[in-house]
Design a binder for these strands. Structure first.
Lengths: 239, 239
DNA sequence: CAGTGGTCTAGACCACCTT
DNA sequence: AGGTGGTCTAGACCACTGC
């Protein structure tokens, strides 16, 4: 195997080469990579160059290193990274993942807004999934999730959807979410959602609009979540 | 100069040594560091080890490299990093920093809650600053900012406070904010804030509680911001 | 024990900036 | 031309893992 001759630094070429393998699914989550020495020999570069490329991927959460064992493709579903994209927690600080219950699943043509957010053709088929999430038997979030059928074939025909959809995406659809983009607003709760959240009409809720980005850069999921933030807050740490 | 003999990796010791210089103010924002070669000679390590330490600091936004010129202490006030901790923008995507107007400045003893958030002694003196921020002459945010006087001596006696407080902190008080921790909730607007935001009582607003962390790890500012999210949203990208 | 990643070094050459 | 950071290499030794 040799690298294509660009004017990119070698380590960047190695990075692109390895990332492409991830995108194509040739390397699967939790799978071990060849050792740095082996990769260096295969690609005709030094171990230090391979190391620099893998360091970059580790910093992007694509890979994990385990000293003495090897380098592995990140398992996004692991306990350690389960909270990576879930930012709600109780005000005292404890992270709890709420249960979820499906309200409805519908297959339909996308709206113009959805087509724009998800870069879809007009009238392309999507699945609209609505769920209510509960914590200690109290509802805290109602969400509407839009999934293009071109990305998730027949996802609406699966028996039971897991609490963590990203795990499902990774295992059944070869979709690895590596980034989410969110916009937050405070709104009064929509009337058809108030009862699910067991709050009065007119109450303030947090609206989180989220675009989920696959490892190949495509936005593959679009969602709206209405959240009751009485005993549940959205927390962000930024450095 | 030689390093203290711990069981830390060399590059980590170099990192700690350089970061301590930043904390003590021996290196000031925009100041150039000695060259990697010079640092390596001074500390009796190789250039590669110095490079690894500085790389770490660059990844934490403490330093900036400019090829051919040198390595510099980050100027947090620069255009490029001005938006680092400011997450509001218009829904179409453009970043605008709103103007701000001071409502009140008071010096008083801290409350119990403030003492807890800011790790203060009971009854320690603080300054409470209230500002309203406007965009295109329309109010969008009302904020209450708590500043311990032990950290910011006589800050309430300054002539005019700039729009960007962090710039002031850096230039006048040797405080460099490197991290913020925020909690977000949707609430109905407090009655005394509704008029500042020019909205009806009972409207939903976004409450952002923020702790600002200095380079030495201390939380040096605590604030609450009530935001009208009609034409202004809070946006987050997470990878 | 062998194999892996983690650290550290020394030296080479390149790309960029200033003078 | 001389100095800076950026890339790349080759080789050494250490720390951790599993057999």
């Amino acid at each position: 195997m040799s690298l294509s001759p660009n004017f990119q630094p070698l380590y960047k070429q190695v990075y692109d080469y390895m990332t492409a393998k991830l995108v194509r699914g040739e390397l699967k989550p939790s799978e071990a990579l060849p050792s740095e020495q082996a990769l260096a020999a295969e690609l005709n570069v030094s171990q230090g160059t391979v190391r620099k490329a893998l360091d970059l991927m580790v910093s992007e959460n694509l890979l994990e290193r385990r000293q003495g064992k090897g380098t592995f493709v990140s398992e996004f579903t692991q306990e350690s990274s389960l909270f990576r994209f879930f930012h709600f927690r109780e005000p005292n600080g404890s992270h709890l993942i709420p249960d979820s219950k499906i309200i409805s699943i519908k297959r339909r043509a996308c709206t113009k807004a959805e087509a724009k957010h998800l870069s879809l053709q007009a009238k392309e088929k999507i699945v609209e999934l609505r769920r209510v999430r509960t914590l200690k038997n109290k509802p805290v979030i109602v969400e509407k999730i839009i999934q293009p059928l071109s990305v998730f074939p027949d996802i609406d025909k699966m028996d039971d959807l897991p609490n963590s959809l990203y795990t499902l995406y990774q295992e059944k659809f070869a979709i690895s979410i590596v980034e989410v983009r969110e916009e937050l607003r405070a709104v009064t709760v929509p009337s058809d959602y108030a009862s699910y959240l067991e709050i009065d009409a007119g109450a303030a809720v947090l609206l989180v609009e989220r675009a989920s980005v696959n490892i190949d850069g495509r936005i593959v999921e679009w969602s709206e979540a209405f959240c009751k933030t009485e005993d549940f807050v959205y927390s962000v740490n930024l450095r």
